[in-house]
């Protein structure tokens, strides 16, 4: 008989791998990428491909220089590249995008130990860094469908959130359907709500993400907006569909590494994101707060994890603690 192979149980494993989870996320991001290419032209696709390529190359270089195992085959760098590009204005100079990729992959992800070890979402952190470094370029928004119209209309527009924050009447400029289809100014991957929802449903169906995070995140913003604006449903829908809320709630607040592991923790995380987003949008000088809310909650994740450890079935925790307390006290 051949040499026998010995291993500890279990001897069968699910077909799920890190790589095919990441591949699912890439697939889920594709509808939004297609939408972005239609809305903002081929340059949206070009920027996304460049970001993905840069992220992969940076990770590979880091692995080589740091003499670490090559990890690019897990596809997570591709996901980071796509998400980062989705958070950028389509006309952003390429070198800035490359800097963003460097921040995301090398500083936020690899220096903290690579996949699973980073405490902050790489794409979000890179976006915030770019926003603070290149504010003008990061807030210049291309007009939707400009490449199709061939017109001499304004090539840049204000985002719905900026308009709302400025007290402008938005309903005349963008209809709710425009908002849903993504025909508005904004980061390249955040505008088409329809495409993002299709991606979200795919991720839910594939069991990659759980519904708690997006529902609680978006739900919190919805409820608070309604309460503040005297139950103005139209305004609430504009709020939900503008900025990066849906992109953030479906794809970024559901990131595994940087969010709590338990369901209870995920709910706390998502509600926290919703609260901060609402607070920034309504009361701060910045029009958008999704990125900041996720980054802040990323930082709170270890603490949330600590306080949401589930009680094991039949565990005798409280009594023991009491006894120890008596001894020590």
């Amino acid at each position: 008989m051949n040499k026998l192979f010995v291993e500890a149980s279990p001897h069968i494993r699910s077909s799920r791998t890190t790589q095919n989870i990441m591949l699912d996320v890439v697939i889920a991001l594709c509808p939004a990428l297609i939408a972005a290419t239609i809305i903002f032209g081929i340059k949206a696709l070009v920027l996304t491909v460049i970001c993905c390529a840069c992220c992969v190359v940076f990770e590979l270089l880091f692995n080589i220089i740091a003499k670490k195992e090559r990890t690019i085959s897990d596809m997570s760098a591709v996901v980071t590249g796509m998400l980062l590009s989705f958070n950028l204005p389509v006309d952003l100079p390429i070198y800035m995008a490359v800097i963003g990729c460097f921040i995301a992959i090398v500083i936020v992800k690899c220096l903290f130990g690579g996949i699973g070890q980073n405490f902050a979402n790489p794409a979000i952190t890179a976006r915030i860094a770019l926003m603070l470094s290149f504010t003008a370029a990061m807030t210049t928004w291309a007009a939707p469908l400009a490449s199709w119209k061939n017109s001499v209309d304004a090539t840049t527009v204000a985002t719905p959130l900026a308009m709302m924050a400025g007290g402008e009447d938005i309903t005349g400029t963008y209809s709710l359907l425009d908002m849903f289809l993504g025909l508005r100014g904004g980061c390249l991957g955040e505008t088409c709500i329809l495409a993002l929802l299709i991606g979200g449903i795919y991720l839910l169906a594939r069991g990659v993400i759980r519904f708690e995070t997006p529902v609680c995140f978006i739900g919190t913003v919805a409820v608070l907006t309604l309460l503040k604006n005297g139950f103005d449903f139209t305004n609430m829908l504009y709020q939900l569909m503008s900025g990066g809320l849906v992109l953030g709630a479906v794809f970024m607040a559901t990131d595994y590494s940087t969010t709590p592991v338990t369901t209870k923790g995920k709910i706390i995380f998502a509600v926290g994101c919703g609260l901060i987003t609402f607070g920034i949008r309504q009361f701060a000088t910045m029009p958008e707060g999704v990125s900041f809310s996720i980054l802040v909650m990323n930082c709170l994740t270890p603490m949330i994890d600590r306080f949401t450890v589930p009680k094991p079935l039949g565990a005798l925790v409280p009594e023991k603690k009491k006894k120890e307390g008596e001894k020590n006290g």
């Binding site: 799920r16 791998t17 890190t18 989870i21 990890t71 897990d74 997570s76 690579g114 996949i115 699973g116 070890q117 595994y256 590494s257 709590p260 592991v261 338990t262 369901t263 589930p310």
Partner: peptide, 12 residues
């Protein structure tokens, strides 16, 4: 075996 990605599947 690859790195833990903190997906929480084991917890659930």
């Amino acid at each position: 075996t690859t790195a833990c990605i903190r997906c929480g599947r084991c917890v659930r």
